[in-house]
């Protein structure tokens, strides 16, 4: 019974600690939770925060969808085909290790400070992670279930939908969760370096003004959105897919 309330208790404990430190330090560098909440509300009322948040979310959705589609397709193909994997394996390691900052700068230099360059930079950073996760998942597929599908003459689509994808579910969810976290961090970098709107652009402005309360207010807003996404979309999806367990 007590353990049911542990997550809520831990959040309250954190807020109390934060409030105590803010009172103790009494500095603009650590505004109190109450102050952050007030600033958050002001940015919401002015319409500034919803605008920049929606711009960033739009970029997140587009780059996430493209990254997952490309990553899953290539990852499954590499997991199923040894020759293809041998051909691309080194490139995958190289792309995994190219710093995000380098990709963002190169995309902006080569393609200009445009929306598509920004999305491309995010996608190039995320796709290798999805490929690796899905490739490992595909390698771990139950060969006997695939043989069963083949012996009963399942079509490719039927095999993919009913035999392969359910087995890849944990890997897909892992790529989705880590993907959302990684993409949002890269998007901030992309917006900071080359866009005139979005959360990253705003955070850059607040940094120049040393406005820590606004930085924290924007961060809280985004964390809130990701949590809502987790509880409204990802968790129910997980429960639905794993109801047989």
């Amino acid at each position: 019974m007590f353990s049911k309330f542990l997550p809520t208790i831990s959040i309250f404990a954190f807020l109390i600690l934060w409030q105590s430190l803010a009172i103790f330090l009494h500095s603009n560098l650590l505004p109190s939770p109450e102050n952050v909440a007030r600033i958050f509300w002001q940015h919401c009322e002015s319409g500034e925060l919803p605008h920049h948040l929606s711009v960033t979310l739009w970029r997140l959705v587009v780059s996430f969808v493209i990254s997952m589609f490309l990553g899953c397709t290539i990852g499954i193909a590499l997991g199923l085909n040894k020759k293809l994997n041998a051909f691309f394996d080194n490139w995958l390691v190289i792309f995994l290790n190219v710093p995000a900052l380098v990709t963002v700068i190169l995309c902006y230099v080569w393609f200009g400070l445009t929306e598509s360059a920004a999305i491309l930079a995010v996608v190039l950073n995320k796709v290798p992670n999805v490929i690796v996760t899905l490739r490992e998942g595909t390698r771990a597929l139950d060969k006997e279930l695939l043989n069963m599908a083949k012996s009963y003459r399942f079509s490719r689509v039927k095999t993919l939908l009913h035999v392969i994808l359910p087995q890849l579910h944990p890997f897909l969810m892992s790529a989705t969760r880590s993907g959302l976290a990684l993409i949002w961090k890269i998007i901030l970098l992309v917006e900071l370096l080359g866009r005139s709107d979005g959360m990253g652009y705003q955070l850059h402005l607040f940094f120049q003004w040393f406005d820590i309360a606004s930085i924290l207010a924007y961060t809280v807003a985004f964390i809130g959105v990701i949590q809502i996404l987790e509880f409204i979309v990802l968790k129910p999806l997980d429960n639905l897919a794993l109801r047989w367990r």
């Binding site: 006997e144 279930l145 069963m148 009963y152 039927k158 009913h162 359910p166």
Partner: peptide, 29 residues
């Protein structure tokens, strides 16, 4: 045309995420 072949493997090879009925129904073209 392609002959219909039923195969009973050493392991049952059932899809764990489908019920008994759904496992049977899935093999129909």
């Amino acid at each position: 045309q392609n002959p219909k072949i039923g195969f009973v493997f050493q392991r049952p090879c059932l899809l764990p995420w489908r019920t008994v009925r759904e496992n049977i129904e899935l093999v129909f073209e």
